[in-house]
Design a protein around this nucleic acid. Sequence first.
DNA 1: CGTGACATTGACTAGTATCAACCAAAGTGG
DNA 2: CCACTTTGGTTGATACTAGTCAATGTCACG
Lengths: 257, 257
Amino acid sequence: MNPFGKITPLRSPIAINLAERHPASACDECGARHIGLCDALSDEELGFLFRAAQHMSIPPGKLLMEEGGPAQHYFNVNSGMVRLFKALPDGRRQIIGFAGPGHFIGLALTEVNVVSAEAMEPVQVCRFSRAGLSAMAADYPALERKLLDIAVHELALGQQQMLLLGRKTALERTASFLLSWAQRQEPCGDGGLPRPNAKLILPLARADLADYLGLTIETVSRSLGHLKKDGLIEITKIHEIILLRPKALAEVAEAAD
Amino acid sequence: MNPFGKITPLRSPIAINLAERHPASACDECGARHIGLCDALSDEELGFLFRAAQHMSIPPGKLLMEEGGPAQHYFNVNSGMVRLFKALPDGRRQIIGFAGPGHFIGLALTEVNVVSAEAMEPVQVCRFSRAGLSAMAADYPALERKLLDIAVHELALGQQQMLLLGRKTALERTASFLLSWAQRQEPCGDGGLPRPNAKLILPLARADLADYLGLTIETVSRSLGHLKKDGLIEITKIHEIILLRPKALAEVAEAAD
DNA sequence: CGTGACATTGACTAGTATCAACCAAAGTGG
DNA sequence: CCACTTTGGTTGATACTAGTCAATGTCACG
């Protein structure tokens, strides 16, 4: 874990000049420019932020952060998918969430990370030193406000997941997941259902799914099989699922009768 | 503790005048003055905040917020205990957390509440309109920063709870809970164990415990009985538990071998 | 075409829920 | 002051969901 160059936080008017002299043209071509954190910033602000970032490529399986290790950086995902998880000493694992393009990783107060973050595929990120971004946040209210938004949104997702993990059956969990993933893939209005026959791309292995839903891979497989048998979904490829009847799926997910 | 460094002082002279004309003397006697949100503010800032608050008493069982209802207010708990929960249509309930004195309730982005909040005993709160507090946050960076701190802290707690709900056994959940509650009752250093024979006051019914841990009351009862039989705890009164061997309890909680 | 990784399916088991009886403490009213 | 009720908690017997272990299937890739 080598923190390469220390990022010197720039805050004077000079900083803005520097930013102007170095427009963040790279950001224009970044898939994450208009989502998440970056979307909250003007071109100028973004230029500044860009200069504070280290652009990095991470190979699959590599950890961006390790639970228990020193919390030194924040990350913003530009491409690829990252899994966030916690583990018990005996190896049991709970996946906390998945971070795709535009997602911000590393919000924490403690000196050590409370979760691990691992690249699931080749991933590109912008990395920020904690101190550097904190300093920026002090000068750019929009940045801090966006971080609050992000944190609050994650909070709501987490609460939803607690309900799922604490009180839903395997079948309900699976149906809930499919719907929430569809929502994530193409947002269709607040709480709206995906359209019938929506195609779902699942870049997750069954093991990830299981560790996310608090189940075993066998139970996930059986649950999906059950939904397939009932004609609610169709599994075309292993990582491609068609939601034949989203409405019915929603009823399974919430145990509505 | 604060990831975003320094606290920026007040910027609006008008605010100071208002605060001076209405000193928040009531806050001085409030049990929550030096914890949570209020602790982040100076006397002057607090005076201003106080003027924006409605001080309210809530009887046991009454809802402060209802899941699915319009999100109109934030609350800061001054005394008493509040449970936050989500429910499924068939009545299954998952308690998301407990809010005691100094805890801030209602962080959300959506127009409707995503959780319900219910007084477990007579509760006193300061209530803020959403718009009012948002406006204040724009003027008082310290306030917004504190909200971010709160959100991030809740996030970490939620992640811990996801691990518990998704991957721990009934016994592990129960042991984990006892330790985390002890920590909450008298913080003893980051991650430190409570001292042996620490007395725990549990203002929760078994049903609350069960809904918080994703178990049934019978299983909670059996788990506590198991810990008692093994000499790790002693149940003196129904709402009073002595942690005889916190170290052993921690081993049970994390399944260390 | 073989190999290995990942997924599905089946048989069996274990842990927790469910259902029901019993118990204890705290009112309540005669 | 003492039955009586109520409420919340514990304990026991049984059922059922999901986990475990093992065999089989599928697909990508060299």
